[in-house]
């Protein structure tokens, strides 16, 4: 008993100071760290690859004729950096920023409007290598304002209310990518 307590005391005294001085001192992040997403509207071609793979669907695209509006709801972001991985132009990337706490969620929402034109280099759309990622996901792209993610995870419109008796009606697949 006494021996065990002695050993435990040695461990405790040998530990020294282990707490960090953060937030009074900056806390550096490791090289591969995936923080808040940053993007560059000048590089983006609005192919929608990022929105298609985004697991929490925090990126959605709305095509509006000459322009495409891309919305980033970063309060939903899980920092997986899949968007960075599939982006052909590397127009989106994770930064070192992790202090994203805010009392207002709208601080984390950004929008980007991109002028659309045919690719000058190859004249066609971008394709990923991975067959799974090529396949289009649901509701990340819509034609016209408010059409993407119409009844989706974050309520641009409220979720469907349940009406009795349970009818076998499925949600129409409107607003899906072309």
């Amino acid at each position: 008993m006494f021996k065990a307590k002695l050993k435990e005391a040695v461990i405790c005294f040998g530990a020294g100071r282990v707490t960090l001085k953060y937030p009074f001192e900056p806390s550096p992040v490791p090289p591969k760290f995936r923080g808040k997403i940053e993007f560059d509207a000048r590089k983006c071609i609005a192919c929608g690859g990022c929105a298609n793979v985004c697991p929490p669907r925090c990126i959605v695209i709305e095509d509006m004729g000459e322009v495409a509006k891309i919305t980033f709801n970063l309060d939903r972001c899980i920092q997986c950096a899949r968007c960075y991985e599939v982006c052909p132009e590397k127009a989106i990337w994770p930064t070192d920023e992790f202090e994203t706490a805010t009392p207002d969620k709208s601080d984390l929402k950004s929008e980007m409007i991109v002028w659309m034109s045919t690719c000058q280099r190859c004249g066609r759309c971008f394709e990923t290598d991975n067959a799974i990622d090529k396949f289009e996901s649901k509701r990340w792209r819509g034609r016209g304002p408010g059409e993407a993610n119409k009844h989706g995870i974050f309520p641009i419109k409220p979720p469907i209310d349940f009406s009795m008796p349970g009818s076998l009606v499925r949600e129409p697949e409107e607003g899906q990518g072309q």
Binding site: P30, Q79, C80
Partner: peptide
């Protein structure tokens, strides 16, 4: 609580290791 404090101290470098390898200490993606 001595066990709690000491084992979590020993554990922390493993979390940093995960961060080093995958980018995040949890939800390695």
């Amino acid at each position: 609580d001595t066990v709690l404090m000491q084992l979590w101290r020993i554990r922390e470098p493993v979390m940093w290791l995960m961060e080093r390898v995958t980018g995040n200490r949890k939800h390695y993606s």
